[in-house]
Simulated assay, not measured.
Amino acid sequence: MSYQFEELFSEILDDNREVLEEIEPFEHPLVVLLRKCLEEQESMLERLIEEFEEGKTELKDIKTNCSALFHANQKVNPYFADWKRATGWIGYKDDNPSKELMESLKEKLGVMQDDLIKIASKLDEEYGESTAKYFIPTFYLPEERVD
């Protein structure tokens, strides 16, 4: 099971790094906040991948980093949505991102979100719902668990 976690975390890390690279030239205040959250997410992903590579898959070894990862991701999407909306108001010109770039970023962030939901479901199965609820925000848990 741990190889599945490692694979999913690696996919998210790749997408995360691509998004960080693509937003690098922009200095909008919302991008600064977005970048900070993505950097935190990147750090947690690197730690989690390392834990799984070392075979440390006990809950005590991953719980804190998983929790920080999910919470960082919860901030990524609103910051991006606000930046996208602000860019639309200002217009896609000059030093602003293109409409195509914004759509590409939206797609990558959506894939990352979907992968985190898959991870949350697998963590829920692996470690049990009575434990997972303490380190996985309900937004990421399967709908039938939240009701």
Rank of each mutant, 00 (worst) to 15 (best):
E126T: 14
E7V: 04
A86N: 07
R85N: 10
L59G: 01
I90F: 11
N16P: 04
Q74I: 08
T138D: 14
D94H: 12
L20D: 03
C37E: 15
I49A: 04
K36Y: 11
E126Q: 12
Q74H: 08
E53K: 15
T57G: 15
K75H: 09
K60D: 14
D82L: 15
K122R: 10
V31Y: 02
P25D: 06
S130H: 13
E51R: 13
N16C: 13
H71W: 11
K122I: 09
L69S: 03
F52V: 05
N73M: 07
A132I: 02
Q4H: 10
G55N: 00
L69M: 10
K133Y: 05
N65R: 11
I23A: 04
K99W: 12
L101G: 05
R35Y: 01
V32T: 13
I119P: 00
L116Q: 05
F5C: 00
E143I: 09
L69Y: 03
K133M: 09
S67M: 11
D61R: 06
L8T: 11
S121R: 15
E129Q: 15
L116R: 02
N77Y: 08
A68H: 09
L101A: 08
L34H: 04
T64H: 10
E143F: 10
P25V: 03
I62K: 02
V19L: 01
G110V: 00
G55M: 03
K108W: 00
E27L: 07
T57W: 11
T138C: 11
N16L: 03
K118R: 14
W89T: 13
F135T: 02
G88V: 06
D115Q: 09
F9S: 00
L69Q: 03
L123N: 01
E143R: 14
N96P: 08
Y92K: 10
P142T: 05
Y140H: 00
E24F: 10
L48G: 01
E50S: 15
R35W: 04
N77L: 13
E129S: 15
L33H: 10
R35F: 05
G88C: 05
F80I: 03
L141T: 06
A81K: 07
K56W: 06
K99S: 15
G110L: 04
L30A: 06
N73Q: 12
I62V: 15
F135C: 04
M112K: 02
R145F: 10
E126C: 07
L101Q: 07
L101P: 06
M112S: 07
F9C: 01
S10C: 06
F5E: 03
S2R: 12
T131V: 13
H71A: 08
D115G: 03
E18H: 09
F139V: 09
L105I: 12
E58F: 06
T57Y: 12
I117S: 11
L59R: 09
D82W: 11
F135P: 03
L33T: 09
F80K: 01
C37Y: 14
V32S: 14
Y140W: 10
L34R: 05
V76M: 01
K106S: 14
N73C: 08
D95L: 15
K106V: 00
S121A: 14
M44F: 11
K118I: 07
A81R: 07
